[in-house]
């Protein structure tokens, strides 16, 4: 087992402060605290080489969980083991076996070339020179790094900087990768490159990948297993397909027609309620038990149409999943 998490809980004490000068003065001597349960008895195991995505709205506890797994935050209660080690002990062996990439924080020094930071990490992580050379060459090829690693980091574009961050974070070839919003702010092209890279790294080294992201595409591309977290609780744990089946609003029907008559258009938009998309295509998400009826109707009236059935966008699935979770919570309350 690569990652074991049992009953992991994190409770923050947040100081409560009333506005006004008097209460400010009072708060110097006596502070009132409110408890915020960021993560609530979360349990899961991850096998070596698995790619797991944490999904959830802002403030769901994704990042808190990731920071506990990487040893930055101490759990209020519960247990974490990463390859048998306790993260919060921050032993040298543990630190050498993991990496955490935060899309919004950087380890590279702003005014120095990235290559200097690479060289520093080589020493800090005790990487033999020969091995370091090979890995750097490999990462350079995979990430498309080039001479920009010799420019001060402040002069790099966000995409270049993020690619350098990834290289710096993976030089010591960690067996467990924690990625916190790794593609935030990047343009589409670089996002795709980063995803492909993580994919390749996972396949080449067999590393375990745990990822949080707002970006559904990230999750769909990188993660084979999804943990849905909301209000600190795991709402779902399973594959992407299961998630679609469980929460998905149905199947996505797409119809492509060469040329349509007015009557046919009326059928598509008026009767079936489909919305027109690009290049003479119409689509609609249809509930599972209605799929057959709609398909039959389409084949009858539009025999020339090209009909495909697919999964609805992940975004839609999630909106429904969190909506359901909220309803359940409100019922419970």
């Amino acid at each position: 087992m690569s990652v074991q998490v049992r009953d992991l809980t994190k409770v923050y004490q947040v100081p409560v402060k009333q506005p006004g000068l008097l209460s400010t003065l009072r708060s110097v001597f006596h502070r009132e605290y409110r408890e915020v349960r960021a993560v609530d008895r979360v349990s899961f195991n991850v096998e070596p080489g698995e790619r797991v995505g944490f999904l959830g709205p802002n403030g769901a506890g994704k990042t808190t969980t990731l920071k506990m797994l990487s040893g930055l935050l101490h759990p209020t209660s519960g247990e974490v083991r990463i390859e048998g080690r306790r993260p919060q002990d921050r032993s040298v062996d543990f630190l050498k076996s993991i990496t955490l990439v935060m899309g919004q924080k950087q380890q590279l020094i702003w005014d120095l070339p990235a290559s200097d930071s690479f060289e520093l990490n080589r020493a800090l992580f005790d990487i033999p020179r020969q091995v370091y050379r090979e890995r750097l060459d490999e990462l350079t090829a995979l990430l498309g790094l080039d001479e920009f690693t010799d420019q001060p980091v402040r002069n790099l574009s966000l995409g270049q900087r993020m690619r350098c961050e990834l290289a710096a974070a993976l030089l010591h070839r960690p067996g467990t990768l924690f990625l916190d919003e790794p593609t935030i702010g990047l343009d589409v092209e670089v996002q795709a490159q980063v995803r492909q890279f993580i994919d390749a790294y996972n396949r080449n080294t067999g590393a375990t990948v745990l990822l949080t992201s707002h970006d559904m595409e990230d999750v769909a591309h990188i993660a084979e297993r999804i943990l849905l977290i909301d209000h600190g609780v795991v709402r779902f744990d399973g594959s992407l397909g299961e998630l679609q089946r469980r929460f998905g609003p149905g199947r996505l029907l797409t119809v492509k027609v060469g040329r349509t008559t007015e009557a046919q258009e009326h059928l598509l938009t008026g009767v079936l309620g489909m919305s027109a998309g690009a290049a003479a295509s119409w689509s609609k998400t249809v509930a599972p038990d209605e799929v057959n009826a709609v398909l039959t109707r389409l084949l009858q009236d539009l025999p020339s149409a090209e009909v495909s059935v697919g999964e609805p966008p992940l975004r839609e699935v999630l909106t429904r999943a969190f909506g359901e979770a909220r309803e359940r919570r409100e019922e419970g309350a």
Binding site: K67, L95, I98, L100, M102, Q106
Partner: peptide, 8 residues
């Protein structure tokens, strides 16, 4: 945080 993740 980024400093703490390094083994030094």
């Amino acid at each position: 945080s980024t400093q703490l993740l390094r083994p030094v």
